[in-house]
Computed example of a mutant assay.
Amino acid sequence: MRVDLFDFDLPAENIALRPASPRDSARLLLVPGDGAMEDRIVRDLPSLLRAGDVLVFNDTRVIPAQLEGMRGEARIGATLHKRLGLRQWQAFLRNAKRVRDGDRIDFGAGVTAIAGPRDEDGGVTLDFEGEEPVEILLERAGRMPLPPYIASKRATDERDRSDYQTMFAREDGAVAAPTAALHFTPDLTAALAQAGVLTETLTLHVGAGTFLPVKADDTDDHRMHAEWGRIDQDTADRLNAARAAGGRIIAVGTTSLRLLESATGEDGVIRPFADETRIFITPGYRFRAIDGLMTNFHLPKSTLFMLVSALMGRDRMQQVYAHAIATGYRFYSYGDSSLLLP
C-alpha cells in the first residue's frame, strides 16, 4: 500500500510536551466498530469494559539510553536500542560518519565504549569498557530517550525519569516507553479489579526503531526493526482461558498488541514466546489474539497509524484522528488515549 494513504495534517499545538496530571485524568476517545465516538477520560475505563475482559500491559522498563560523547574533536550522540551481550549494545549514532570501527567514544562520567561495525539496520555496535554493569553506567551518564518530537522542543529533565515510566515497569531494556500504560494509576487499577476486569503483563523491549520514519513509498518496501519479547506459559494459559470464557483480550499499547499477535497461531491460541519480532501490521492483516486496543494518538505515515488502521479501517481512523485534532486531543507519547473496540 502507498504510505501517503496514512498521512494527515497535525497542528504542532496538538503535540503534548508533558503528561496529564494525575495520569488517569487524560482524555480517552472511545471508538466502537460502528456507532458514534464518545469523548471520555481514562478514569472511565471500568465502566467501558466488561467483567472478564483482560487488559494486557507491557512491563518493560525504560533505561536512560541516550548518551552524548566525544570521539576526538567530534561530538557523537548515541541511542542504545538493543542489547547484544553483557557489555555490548546496538546503537544509532548521531554524526555517525565521524566514527569508524575501533574508535573509542568518551561519554563522560567514566563511561567509554569502542565502536564496532555497522549492521544491516544502520546501527553501530558499542562495546562498553570496564567491569561495571552497563545499566549502572547509563544511570550515571545517560538521559531518558524522549521521542524526537518532544526532545526537539524542550530539554529532558529529572521529571522525565518518572513521567516516562509506567507503573508496571520492572524489566530493564526499553528505550521507549509503552506509552498507553502511562495513563494508569494504582487507584484506576483497583477500580478495574473491583469491576471484574483482569490484568496480565508481558515484556517487549521497545527499540529506538519505533521513532524512525517510514522512508519507503510503499509499505511492502519498509523493513521493521527487531524487538525482543517474552510471554511465559502461565500468562498464555490464563489469556486463552479468559478468552474461552467469553472475555475480551484488550492490548494496552501497540507493543503489547504486536507481541500478542506474534505469539498467536492461526488457530487463535496464544503460545509462550521468547524471541525477536519484526511483525508489521497493515490493513488486510487478520488479527488473531486481540479484541481491542487502548493506544495513544500516533504520527502521520507511521507504522503505528498503519496498525490502528488495520484494526479499525483506514477511513474510520482518518475520521477518528480528524475528530481528535478538531476537539483538542493531545498527541503522541505524553498525550491522550483512545479505546478501539472493533
Rank of each mutant, 00 (worst) to 15 (best):
D221V: 02
T203K: 06
I270S: 05
D217L: 13
L257V: 05
A180I: 07
V269R: 15
R230Q: 12
A174M: 01
T264P: 05
L259T: 11
A169K: 13
A180C: 06
G268C: 07
G207F: 01
R159H: 14
T203A: 08
H205D: 04
W228Y: 15
R243K: 14
P213H: 03
G196V: 01
G253T: 04
E227C: 13
Q194A: 14
T255P: 00
R170D: 08
T254D: 01
A195T: 03
G207L: 03
A190N: 12
F273H: 14
T210A: 09
T264C: 13
R223C: 10
G173F: 00
A195E: 03
W228N: 04
A216N: 11
D217V: 12
H222D: 13
D218F: 15
D232S: 03
V252E: 08
E261F: 11
S256C: 03
T166I: 02
R243E: 01
E171N: 06
L239Q: 04
G247C: 00
E261S: 12
R230I: 06
V175A: 09
R278W: 04
L239F: 02
L257E: 05
A174V: 00
A241H: 07
T185A: 12
A236Q: 12
G207E: 01
F184H: 07
L260R: 07
D163T: 07
L259K: 07
P186T: 11
L239V: 05
H183I: 10
T255Y: 02
P272C: 12
A181N: 08
V197L: 03
Q194N: 05
A263P: 07
H183A: 09
F280W: 11
L192N: 05
A251V: 09
Y164V: 09
A226T: 14
Q165T: 06
I281K: 09
I249V: 15
A180N: 09
Y164I: 11
A274N: 15
T201H: 07
A274R: 15
A190G: 14
P186D: 14
T254K: 01
P178V: 01
I281F: 14
A226K: 14
T203L: 10
V197T: 05
P283V: 13
N240G: 06
A245F: 01
A242G: 04
F280L: 14
I250N: 02
D220P: 03
D275R: 14
S256F: 00
E276S: 15
I279W: 08
D275C: 04
R248M: 04
G247P: 00
R159T: 15
V252H: 09
A241E: 13
A236L: 08
W228E: 10
R238T: 14
L259N: 10
V175H: 00
D217W: 08
V252I: 13
L239Y: 04
M167W: 00
L204A: 00
D237W: 08
E158K: 08
N240S: 06
R271N: 10
L257P: 01
E276L: 14
A177M: 09
A274G: 10
T201G: 07
H183F: 11
S162F: 06
N240E: 07
A244M: 13
A191S: 14
T210K: 07
G196C: 01
T254H: 02
D267A: 09
A169W: 10
S162T: 15
A216K: 10
D237R: 15
P283Q: 15
E158V: 07
T219Q: 04
R243F: 02
T219I: 14
D275I: 07
I250P: 00
D220S: 13
